[in-house]
Design a protein around this nucleic acid. Structure first.
Lengths: 189, 189
DNA sequence: GGCGCTTTTTGCCAAATGGCAAATGATGTC
DNA sequence: GACATCATTTGCCATTTGGCAAAAAGCGCC
C-alpha cells in the first residue's frame, strides 16, 4: 500500500484523511502466473496497481499472431482505459507473466473516490495522460528501427524485465520472430 | 470557428456564453506549406486546431533519419503536450505539409479559459486522452506487420491524406524506404 | 539419473527490404 | 517549348528477416 501512496503523491497532494479513504477501497490480490487480469470481449471492471510481478497487455491480429502491446512492471497502474471508461468490450488481454501481487479497485469504488475526493480526478488525469504519453513514446520509435535496434531499445526501457520472462513475449512485443530474436541476442553479446 | 465549436461539443456541454469566451480567445492563422507550427528545442507556447490542411509531427533519430510520428488532419487539435504542459523543450517538429488554416490559442489564454470556464478542463482532458489513445492505437500495430500491411493500415487510418502529400512522408511514417514503398504501391494496384 | 515438457538455439533456404544510383515523370518558370 | 527542380520509379545486388523443422538446453518431477 505504501508503494501506491508514494506513487500517487508524485502527481499531486492529498491529506492523510484522503489517503485513508483511498486505502480503504483497495484490495490486495494475488494473480498466479498465466492468469488474466482482464480479457478481450469483456468490459474492464477494475483498476489495478502492480505491487509485484510483470503483466503484459496483448491481443491477436488478423493472422492469429499474438502481439504484446506493452509490459507493465511494479509500481504502475494497470487498467484497460478504453473499455473501463466507455464501458465497451475490451479488445485486449491483460496477462500476468509472472506471479503477481496487485492492488485492486472496483469500478464502483473508483468512481466513488472520484466523486468524494477533491483533486483526485486531477491526479488520476495526470497519471493516465503520463502513462499514455509513455506508451506512445515507447512504442512509436520501434516502427522505424531494425530488429537489433528494437531489442536494444527494449533493454533500455525495460531493463528489469528481460531476465524474468520468456523470449517469445519479447519477440511478440518487438514484432520479430522468436528465432530472429535469438540470433540477434547472440550477435550482441 | 464553427468547426471548432462542433468539435468541442462532442466532448461535453457548454452554454452560449462559454462558447463565446472561447471563441474570443481564438485567432485564425495561415501557415504556409513547409512552415513549422513548433520546433524541436523550443517550448510549445500554443494550442492549435487544424481548420484546413495537413500537419505532421516528426523528429530525427540518432542516425539522422527523419521520422514522421503522425499526421494531423482537419478538425483535430495540434499541441505538443509534453512540452506545453511541463514547459520543457520539445523534441519534435510540427510541420505544415500543405498550406494550412489554424485556430490558435496562446498559452496564457488557454490557461485563462481553464480557470474561468467550469467544465472546460474536463472537456480538454477528454479530448486529450482520446487523442493519446488514438495515437497508441494507430502506431502500435505497425510494429508487428510487414511493409505492405502497414501501408494498407495507413490507407485505412488516413484515407484522405494519401493523395495530398509526398510519398516520402508516408514512408517515414511507416518505417520503410521510399523505394520500397513505391514498389509496394505498384504491387497493390 | 531419467523422463517429459517447454523454451531457446541452429541450420537451411526463401522472401522481404534496404542501399545506391540512374531513369523517368511532374511541375512551375521563363 | 526548354529548362531547372523535385518527386517517384526502377534496376541491381547485398543484407536482413522469416518459415520451418530439428537439435539442444533448461527445468521440474518421479
Amino acid at each position: 500500500m505504501k508503494e501506491f501512496i508514494t506513487y500517487i503523491l508524485q502527481f499531486g497532494n492529498l491529506n492523510q484523511q484522503q489517503l485513508e479513504l483511498i486505502s480503504n477501497k483497495a484490495t490486495e490480490v494475488n494473480l498466479q502466473k498465466d492468469a488474466y487480469f482482464s480479457e478481450a470481449g469483456k468490459i474492464a471492471q477494475q483498476v489495478g496497481f502492480v505491487l509485484d510481478g510483470i503483466v503484459r497487455v496483448c491481443y491477436y491480429n488478423n493472422k492469429g499472431e499474438e502481439i504484446t502491446k506493452y509490459f507493465i512492471e511494479e509500481n504502475n497502474l494497470v487498467v484497460d482505459l478504453e473499455s473501463f471508461d466507455n464501458e465497451i468490450p475490451s479488445s485486449a488481454y491483460v496477462h500476468a507473466i509472472t506471479d503477481c501481487k496487485l492492488l485492486i479497485f472496483s469500478k464502483k469504488d473508483w468512481n466513488e473516490l472520484l466523486h468524494t475526493i477533491i483533486g483526485w480526478d486531477a491526479i488520476v488525469h495526470k497519471i493516465i495522460s503520463k502513462a499514455l504519453r509513455q506508451k506512445v513514446e515507447r512504442r512509436s520509435p520501434l516502427v522505424s528501427e531494425d530488429a537489433t535496434t528494437r531489442y536494444l531499445m527494449f533493454l533500455e526501457i525495460y531493463p528489469n524485465v528481460v531476465n524474468r520472462i520468456p523470449l517469445s513475449y519479447i519477440a511478440s512485443y518487438l514484432g520479430v520472430t522468436q528465432s530472429s530474436l535469438s540470433r540477434i541476442r547472440k550477435n550482441i553479446s
